[in-house]
Design a protein around this nucleic acid. Structure first.
Lengths: 215, 215, 215, 215
DNA sequence: CATGAATGAGGATTCATTCAT
DNA sequence: AATGAATGAATCCTCATTCAT
């Protein structure tokens, strides 16, 4: 009897664990679908039905996992940013030479975008230019992106100390310039229809930037 | 009798001319209001009522001048781009030295934005990243912006000929790099809340760019 | 010119007055329709479409006059109560003899119900027995009904002073007893299908009550 | 072999009996939970999930015992009324003196309500005033309540024969008056928040009623 | 038979567009 | 031509019911 009870209990725990994992997988799948759909259509034109269809579930199911369209949007952004930042940090953070670190950063970003499609470009700029997007972003969303910002600024500071970069510009100013060069490539690439040539641009951007801001 | 008829006809023609002009003025005012409203709220969150209120008319009136919200959006973009491009061309096109022309271009763009507010930033990028915006833009919209693109490319080509710029990069690549640097400043400025310091950045961008791509 | 302007101004004011009145009439008509529909189907089963149909307008129109279904419900209750209380007060308040006042009260209530249909029975009891209804009622709603309560209690107190009623019961207790007798007739009448015989019951109720609580 | 088969058959029958009983117990528990939940929240705001939670089962389980929410509501009403009527009949039916019977009836009803909480007040009135509730009640639901009605009318008739009550009123009219007085106490008690003082009111109601309708 | 997630019909609400004044 | 209220299609969300495990 005790044996049986124990077994049952264990069984239940196992089942719950499985269910937990299934739930997590579902959430992931929905956020993935949301990313694709929002990326393709934007917030308003992406209907809950579209997201559900993309995820292969019924519209009502979305509400078993998330409270509202707004929540899905916010979490999808957060998730995407986290994944993006994680990938970039994993590749670049350990690089000892600051210039190399910047080059690796650039390559990783471009490679990531090439693989994950243009939809992730949305994470580069948090929501663009208008109040509309910002309303829908929670403050916390920025904190992932900020890690990339810090990585760059640290690299620039180090390079300045080593005398590799002009030091009449603040690290923030350098970052703005660098980001601009990088994003411009991304935007141009997106409007070319995302051909598989983005990574190849990394060298040029790196080259131009370093020339431009060399001491 | 014939006299009278002629007079009447002339009167009518005059009246029609006036009406034409009034109509044009109305259209302008509405597009102006639309620019402000779309710029502030984005396409979906800007309601027809908002635009009408901003223009000081009733919602129904908008439909006496335009067929739909989409048309207003498209024409407002076109109008804004035209104005923007006109301003920039007028300032920069006549400059004989290509480097100077680029610097003037940069200063004019920044000055224009500072004066017209962040809402015009929307014209820099034609609609951004997603289908959603592109759906709403007619092909023809690009043709204004293209004039600025051509101005830049011509300047770069000239500068290359004069040996002022490295020539292993195409003028299109140079333009992408340049636009990236410029846009990055704009985005950073917008997220700083559009303080009146954008024009001051023109020199730095110019400097970095020229260093970066010097032969 | 000044004449014309003045005329226009006056015209506008007149038009606005008319519009105000039209709006008020619409609001009335909608609340009237809401009363019928809610009375017939209850809060949840009365759909906005039903109310709109009853009022002879489209569903969307309701939202030009009221913010939500809940607001319509609340205001419809308030309006109904106000009308009901007003009618009763107008008839009974001036009656000098307390016993007569109670009789007139009773007759007026019954006559009102007979004319206005069973739907007004809802105002006798504010929402019934469960949290659900009470949630939807604003505190202020009670204040109309309270005027009727006060009228009754005053009459009972006066009758007690004159030695017409036993005085071992508080006026509140008397009111509860009286209201119970009255409501019971109403409920029975409603379940009989609202035949035109309610007013006739007034004498009996009055008689029984007075006998029951005679000193 | 025959022995074994018999045993098995018996075993199966026993098992089925147990299962039958288990099913019945489940049904009871669910109806009990439904009574609490409907009583607290009303039909629409009580969700199937709420009822299931109150019963300690999953939502799907409800459908192994009942066909729909409507059925649960109807059966819950019936069950509640049956229990209520049973209780009252058990206490009052045997009382020989009609006046005493009425007093005991009153005390039992009040005591029942005090113990079972306001949720049972719903059984006093079968669903209230609107189609909505009546739609959800099957005709048969009335038959329990009718037993109480009959008990009262019989008592009134007997009392009239004994010359204790005026006989210009039908027993139905007397019942309406009596029920009104009684219900009014209940409603007042419910709106006071169901304090434990209801039973104490029985004497007053009885007293007033008897005075009111004394021959 | 219990479970609880999936389903999708249904309803409140919004808002671009129409239209009577 | 201006107005602003009426319209109803479209959309988010709820929740009774179903069904695979």
């Amino acid at each position: 009897m005790a044996e049986t009870t124990k077994k049952k209990r264990r069984t239940r725990r196992v089942r719950e664990t499985i269910r937990e994992e299934t739930r997590a997988a579902y959430r992931e799948a929905i956020l993935e679908a949301a990313a694709k759909t929002f990326g393709r259509l934007g917030f308003h034109d992406a209907k809950m039905t579209d997201i559900a269809a993309e995820a292969g579930v019924a519209a009502g199911t979305l509400y078993n996992y998330f409270a509202s369209k707004d929540e899905i949007f916010a979490l999808m952004l957060e998730r995407g940013q986290e994944y993006f930042v994680e990938t970039v940090q994993a590749a670049a953070a350990a690089e000892p030479d600051p210039a190399q670190r910047i080059l690796v950063f650039l390559r990783t970003v471009f490679s990531f975008l090439e693989q994950n499609g243009p939809l992730f470009a949305i994470y580069l700029r948090q929501g663009g230019l208008n109040e509309w997007s910002r309303q829908r972003l929670r403050e916390s969303d920025n904190h992932h992106i900020r890690r990339n910002v810090e990585l760059l600024k640290a690299a620039f500071a180090e390079a300045q100390e080593r005398g590799q970069l002009r030091d009449d510009l603040s690290t923030e100013e350098l970052r703005e310039l660098f980001t601009g060069l990088m994003d411009a490539q991304v935007f141009a690439w997106v409007s070319r229809g995302c051909p598989p040539d983005l990574v190849a641009k990394a060298e040029v951007v790196f080259d131009v930037f370093l020339n431009g801001v060399r001491r």
